Amino acid sequence: MGQHPGDYGTEVANTMEAELLVDTVAVQRRRIEAALARLDEGTYGTCSVCGTEIDDERLEARPEVDTCREHADTPVTA
């Protein structure tokens, strides 16, 4: 006999949750690496859409962002 169906369902859910966590961490890492590259290039803190300066409050809350508040809904590159 195999596992109880409820146990199998829990195992599948746990595996899916773990895979989502790995994917989320990978995305965060890419965004941080992109922010570090912008820092090296001298473009950190500048909106990648309009070129204006990203305000300090936004950068303090989300240091990896590459857009100003106005363009916050624009997909983050990376």
Rank of each mutant, 00 (worst) to 15 (best):
R29D: 11
C47V: 01
T15I: 08
A61P: 01
V49R: 07
T15R: 02
R30N: 06
E60W: 07
V27R: 15
A26N: 05
L36F: 10
R69H: 07
H71F: 12
V65N: 02
R58L: 04
E53V: 14
T24N: 12
R58G: 03
A35N: 06
L20D: 05
T24Y: 01
A37R: 12
Q28P: 01
H4N: 14
D7G: 08
V76L: 11
E70A: 14
V25L: 13
G45W: 00
C68R: 01
C50L: 10
I54H: 01
E17N: 08
H4I: 12
L39D: 10
N14C: 01
D23N: 14
E19H: 04
E60S: 08
V76Q: 09
G51R: 03
E33G: 14
V22A: 03
L36V: 09
E70K: 11
G51L: 09
T43D: 05
T24A: 09
A61D: 00
L36E: 14
T15M: 02
G42N: 12
S48W: 00
T77F: 08
D56E: 08
H71S: 11
D66F: 00
G9Q: 15
M1N: 10
R62P: 00
T43N: 04
T10K: 13
A34Y: 07
A78M: 07
G42R: 02
M1D: 10
D56Y: 07
T46L: 06
D7M: 08
H4A: 15
L21T: 05
H71M: 11
T24C: 01
Y8P: 00
E17L: 02
T67P: 06
T43R: 02
Y44L: 06
R38D: 15
V76S: 07
R29W: 08
C68W: 00
R58S: 04
E41Y: 06
E70C: 07
D56P: 00
V12A: 11
A34K: 05
T10F: 02
A26Y: 05
A35I: 05
E57A: 11
D40S: 12
T46C: 02
V65Y: 05
G9L: 14
T10N: 07
A37K: 11
Y44G: 04
D23G: 04
P5T: 05
V65I: 12
D40W: 03
E53A: 15
V12L: 09
V12C: 10
T67I: 14
L21D: 03
G9V: 03
G42I: 04
R62L: 14
E33A: 15
L39R: 06
A35C: 14
H4S: 15
C47M: 12
T24S: 10
R58M: 01
T24H: 05
V25P: 00
G42M: 08
V27A: 09
C47I: 03
D7R: 02
T24P: 00
V76C: 01
D73F: 09
R69S: 14
T52C: 08
L36A: 13
